[in-house]
Nucleic acid binder design. Structure first.
Length: 887
RNA sequence: GGGCGUGUAGCUCAGCGGAAGAGCACCCGGUUUACACCCGGGUGGUCGCAGGUUCGAACCCUGCCGCGCCCACCA
């Protein structure tokens, strides 16, 4: 008997896994050893992911933990697969969001940014960035993110700022950036322009008021939800074909309260069916009206300032827009001009995505990107397959947006951000100053005070972080990135910008595939957000259950593009799983499992050994398929992290632990050459299983794998290769048979309420379908797992013994008076009922002539087998029932 | 108004043309020497509704109903 001395490492594994003891030191060790640092000089193929940069202001929430888990899993697996893996970390300066946060801080001390002045304020924000950013980096370490810390970037770094200026100038020179006076979305609280996508629409209750303009024959009724804007009306529009108003077109009518005369114009845009078919036109405060005004040469009359207070001279001057709405309505009512007020009137109202203030459309001079050609290129990249969106169902969204995009307002009236690289001269000159150019000096020259939209710099992220506009070696080697992992909520905010800029500047698209994930929701399906108060700091759960548990729980719920429910129970379950892995590996170590030497040849292995190796081979293939998809099957698109997690969980727990470990105890306890073979298989199974799990649960697998193999680190171990030769159908059938036998006997015991400790004498009785020799194979295993005594293969059921029928085989048990006859009779009757129902349903199917003709032969064959099995089952059960003692 | 998705066990979700699944919850039984963060057994579903295609439908088609999300210059 060859007993391997207990592994010294195993002595260090206590019966419970305590994540807090191992996670921190392991992470530091990984970083020190440089595992996460990508080598630009290696000859490995590159695999690159740039992190969606979190806002410096915040801290990472559950959505980040989720996203990072997915990215880390991809990166760790590729690293194991022999790629030069680069996961580039960094943060976003998040212009408006950060500025708001710092302003709010200042407001506590009753200070405004204007009190500080621009320079001091920006210094303050940098200071804030330093404090806040550190927190985020700490969180990433706790999560186990295998990012390359030597390449950390920030959107306001010098290099990235150069990229911003460079692309600005190129776009300007190409005529794709221009400055114009347009109607833009204005946030009266943030005092800045915002882009279309920074406006959130919600159905708000307002009131629709009908107003009478003009007098007598000139009278015309218009309707509005924003009464105060009438102060800025410079026309009324009707449809050209509208008979009702034809006589008025071209006439001037009087605008109430102001006494101004405004023209009636005919415009196709007006829907004659809607309301009265006449529209008041306020070109300076409504995008539609602005367009109408442009077409008919109407005056643009601004009536509000940047805080949305009325500037039109008169009694309303200085009133806030909402005060003015009431005041103007009152005044008009006094003049008898209010025809009708309809309330409530629900209509879509735009809000600032940052502060929820109602957005005011406002005419103002801003910088824009002419997106048409860029957006077209971004659309084409997906259309022609250079970029895939995963899951594919998201593509219509992409096209719908990219094909209908409005020009992008990029200037912001803020202080925190990339300052617009444009100088204005004393005589109205405009000079865009590139990265390597000197700004003009001299009397009257001044730089544009505004900064750029924060998405302008994040749009450059996949290449600015690698050194662009310089042609660095990193850029050459790691661009384009390999995949973009992000939430579907920022498909347009961010992904579209990166696509447009990447194709424009590089010109390869920045990634060949966009893997979209869903939002993390709480157990009731609510989106986690501050306003709902259901936000959980990932660190709380990491402290309590370990980073691996959190990661595994998140991964387990991840189905491409769909939202992930999250509740503490899920994490608890995942923690239990890490503990299960811990103890299972601990068992392997205590049993002397080894990874040294070749696996024994198949003929020296038990069927259980061959079975687990066969299953393992299948699992390796399934995991690869879930990660990578299947080129032959368009429905398998890959990125199925949930599938990976569920496959491995089920395999590890229900197959390795529940069956293989239990069966392996027999040879191991018995010793001998069979024990050596099983120890080697056990070692192999855990070696491979831990490597497969490492991308999802890096810490516990590292601790266990190094203990098991005594090798350096699973981080740099090879990813398991599929092993088709290990597939063994016969072993799977044998094991299936064993499981059936054991499960049926256990169920019988449980139903008979036989104590688990009682070892029943039993006999396996072969029948036509199962030879004695075949049954012999299972005797020791069945005896051990089903807790039977003196088990043997016999040729009949001894008198007075009960029997359990397992698909063709009888197991006779000596209950010696422990039988509950009534319970047994009920059990048999129920079983007969079920078998009879099965038999008749199958018979009906076979009796159907078209089934025999049309169904494939194997299906028919299978159905026939089912029928004969069902008949045999009924006969056998009936005989058993008859054999039961009368009472 | 357009687009996309979704409705399967009490809960959260897999399955997407050939005998209804998992995790959690629940019930029963367990000091089985890796693990009670465990082990064994069990209850629970006309797969939203109504039609259709098919030998066969949770799965394909049509229509309805419910829910969710995205887009939209509905005065």
């Amino acid at each position: 008997m060859t007993t391997t001395a207990p592994d010294p490492d195993s002595q260090q594994l206590p019966p419970q896994y305590t994540p807090a003891d191992v996670e921190g030191p392991l992470y530091e060790r990984w970083v020190e050893r440089g595992y996460f640092t990508a080598d630009v000089d290696s000859d490995k193929p590159p695999f690159t992911i740039v992190i969606p940069p979190p806002n410096v202001t915040g801290s990472l929430h559950m959505g980040h933990a989720f996203e990072h888990t997915l990215m880390d899993a991809l990166v760790r697996r590729k690293r194991m697969q022999g790629y030069e893996a680069l996961w580039l970390p960094g943060m976003d300066h998040a212009g408006i969001a950060t500025q708001n946060v710092v302003e709010r801080e200042l407001a506590i001390g009753d200070i405004s940014r204007h009190d500080l002045g621009r320079e001091a304020f920006v210094d303050k924000v940098w200071q804030w960035k330093g404090e806040s950013g550190g927190r985020i980096l700490g969180q990433m370490r706790r999560l186990g993110d295998s990012v390359d810390w030597t390449r950390e970037r920030f959107t306001m770094d010098e290099g990235l700022s150069r990229a911003v200026v460079t692309i600005f100038k190129r776009l300007y020179d190409d005529g794709l950036i221009y400055r114009a006076e347009r109607i833009i979305n204005w946030c009266p609280r943030c005092h800045t322009a915002i882009s279309d996508i920074e406006v959130e629409h919600s159905d708000d209750e307002g009131e629709l008021v009908s107003l009478r303009y003009g007098d007598g024959a000139d009278e015309i009724v218009v309707a509005t939800t924003r009464v105060e804007t009438m102060l800025g009306d410079t026309g009324v529009a009707v449809h050209p074909d509208d008979e009702r108003y034809r006589h008025l077109v071209g006439r001037q009518i009087e605008l109430p309260l102001t006494g101004r005369l405004i023209p009636v114009v005919a415009d196709e845009h007006v829907d004659p069916e809607f309301g009265t078919g006449a529209v008041k036109v306020t070109p300076a405060h409504d995008p539609n009206d602005f367009a109408i005004g442009q077409r008919h040469g109407l005056q643009n009359l601004s009536i509000m300032d940047e805080a949305a207070a009325i500037t039109a001279p008169g009694p309303f001057e200085g009133l806030d827009r909402f005060e003015a709405r009431t005041a103007v309505t009152e005044a008009l009512r006094g003049l008898g001009r209010v025809v009708a007020e309809k309330r409530p009137y629900v209509h879509s109202v735009g809000h600032c995505s940052r502060c929820k203030t109602v957005v005011e459309p406002r005419l103002s001079l801003q910088w824009f990107v002419a997106v048409a050609p860029l957006a077209k290129a971004a659309g084409d990249a997906v259309r022609d397959g250079r970029v895939k969106i995963n899951p594919r169902e998201m593509e219509p969204r992409w096209f719908g947006w990219v094909d209908n995009m409005h020009d992008w307002t990029i200037s912001r009236q803020l202080w925190w951000g990339h300052r617009i690289p444009v100088w204005y001269g004393p005589d109205g000159e405009v000079r865009v100053v590139g990265a390597d150019e000197e700004p003009p000096t001299g009397e009257g020259w001044a730089q544009d005070p505004d900064v750029l939209d924060t998405w302008f710099s994040s749009g450059l992220w996949p290449f600015s972080t690698l050194g662009w506009p310089d042609r660095t070696r990193d850029l050459e080697r790691f661009y384009p990135t390999s995949v973009l992992v992000t939430g579907y909520d920022i498909l347009f905010f961010w992904v579209a910008r990166m696509m447009m800029f990447g194709i424009y500047a590089m010109p390869e698209p920045p990634f060949p595939v966009v893997a979209l994930h869903g939002m993390v929701r709480d157990s009731r399906g609510k989106k986690m957000s501050k306003s709902f108060g259901n936000v959980i700091d990932p660190l709380d759960w990491i402290d309590k259950y370990g980073a691996d548990a959190l990661r595994f729980a998140l991964a387990r719920g991840a189905n491409p593009g769909s939202d992930v429910p999250m509740a503490e129970e899920w994490v608890e379950g995942a923690r239990n799983f890490t503990n299960k892995l811990w103890n299972a590996t601990r068992f392997a170590l205590l049993s002397g499992a080894t990874v040294e030497g070749d696996l024994p040849p198949a003929d020296r292995l038990s069927y259980a050994d061959r079975w687990i190796l066969s299953r393992l081979a299948t699992v390796v293939a399934e995991v690869d398929r879930a990660f990578d998809g299947d080129p032959a099957d368009p429905s398998a698109e890959g990125f199925e992290f949930g599938e990976v997690a569920r496959t491995l969980y089920g395999f590890a727990w229900n197959e390795v632990c529940d069956w293989y470990i239990e069966v392996s105890k027999l040879p191991i306890n018995a010793g001998g050459p069979e024990a050596d073979a099983t120890r080697r298989v056990l070692g192999h199974v855990f070696d491979v299983l831990l490597r497969l799990l490492h991308p999802l649960v890096p810490f516990v697998t590292e601790r266990l794998w190094t203990a098991l193999t005594r090798r350096e680190s699973v981080v740099v171990a090879d990813w398991p290769a599929p092993d088709a030769a290990a597939r063994d159908e016969q072993a799977e059938r044998d094991m299936g048979r064993l499981q059936e036998l054991v499960t049926e006997v256990r169920r019988f015991r449980s139903e008979q309420q036989i104590k688990p400790g009682v070892r029943l004498p039993a006999v396996l009785v072969p029948d036509a379908g199962s030879a004695a020799a075949e049954l012999e194979r299972h005797v020791p295993q069945v005896a051990a797992l089903a807790r039977l005594a003196d088990l043997r293969v016999g040729d009949g059921v001894p008198d007075g013994w009960q029997e359990v029928v397992v698909a063709g085989t009888r197991v006779a048990l000596d209950l010696s008076g422990t039988v509950d006859v009534r319970a047994e009779r009920a059990r048999l009757r129920k079983a007969i009922e079920l078998a009879t129902a099965e038999e008749s349903s199958v018979a009906a199917k076979l009796a159907n002539p078209s089934f025999a003709e049309r169904a494939p032969a194997p299906v028919v064959e299978k159905t026939r087998t089912r029928q004969s099995e069902a008949r045999a089952e009924i006969d056998r059960l009936t005989a058993l029932l008859d054999a039961l003692p009368a009472q």
